[in-house]
Design a protein around this nucleic acid. Structure first.
Lengths: 160, 160
DNA sequence: GATCTTCACTTGCTTTTTGCAAGTCTAAAT
DNA sequence: ATTTAGACTTGCAAAAAGCAAGTGAAGATC
């Protein structure tokens, strides 16, 4: 359907115009759980996305404001992407997908203990990830955001 | 990536091999929320899936045991599909997608009140849908107009 | 009982999107 | 000055999607 065309006002359909393909959610996964955040790191993922497709998906995700480019410090390092709050809001979806696959795919590699914790204390797991992810989002460089409470300092790391 | 190829043991990737495309989740949506369950009903959905793609997705979903064909009663009616328990287990994902789109897409048509209830009493909403969907999983279908049954009108109403 | 519909697909062909290899461009390291 | 690394782009073949038309079987209609 020229995949990105909006054809109805259905929320499911809207979501699919943003990430209804085989690759987009893998990039989000990498950003969310795998600590990958640069072009070459995404390329290194096991599934082997093609370079042109990766460039295309990154551009779309940025356009859709699910991810954003981190303006690199003056020291020469790789360009990095990060999730926006809109991107972080996909966390529940991702956790549900993990839960679903853990239940229905015998070959899925998710630790027993993680799945158990996810099912027992979903809100807690979600909150933990969310805190970590949001800590990395747009730390407005001039002002100090007051939300420091309960956030371990290790969250400061923006690279790897 | 020849979309269905399994390239890693990642749960997100597994989920994408099942429904990582622009159409599959729309079929699941139709079954889950719209009361559509036959080939022509799926075709009538606003997004306008192509006939060959629909046939292909139905076959895959059946193969993946997300949906199943309802053996038709002796009376001549249209063939119907229904969600398997594995398919019903996608309900949390779907609700999260609705929530996400309601939050981030101004044009998404989900009723205010439904979204509010979804956020306030997620477990209740989920349980309600799950019960309805699972009730439809086993029993032989009576002759019944399927489109009328059990779609909360909130899902149809537009917000804004 | 021959024709008309409806339903659920298939087939064939065009267009779009992927997949893959190679190349470009920039900046820093050697 | 030459390599190297990162982030892409380009070109082309292959796969998938889109579209129109056709098929076959069952039931309804004339």
């Amino acid at each position: 359907m020229t995949r990105r065309a909006r054809k109805s006002d259905c929320p499911i359909h809207f979501a699919l115009t943003v990430f209804g393909d085989a690759w987009t959610l893998l990039i989000i996964r990498d950003l969310m759980f795998k600590g990958r955040s640069s072009y070459t790191e995404f390329l290194r993922a096991e599934e082997g996305i093609a370079t042109n497709v990766l460039a295309d998906r990154l551009a779309r995700l940025e356009e859709d404001e699910v991810i954003e480019r981190v303006t690199p410090g003056e020291g020469r390092e790789a360009k990095r992407y990060r999730l926006t709050p809109k991107g972080v809001d996909l966390l529940p979806v991702m956790l549900d997908l993990i839960d679903w696959s853990a239940k229905h795919d015998p070959d899925t590699a998710v630790g027993e203990s993680f799945v158990r914790r996810l099912r027992r204390d979903r809100a807690g797991v979600e909150q933990e990830f969310r805190a970590r992810l949001l800590a990395a989002v747009s730390p407005a460089p001039e002002k100090q955001p007051p939300a420091t409470k309960g956030t371990p300092r290790e969250l400061r790391r923006k690279t790897r």
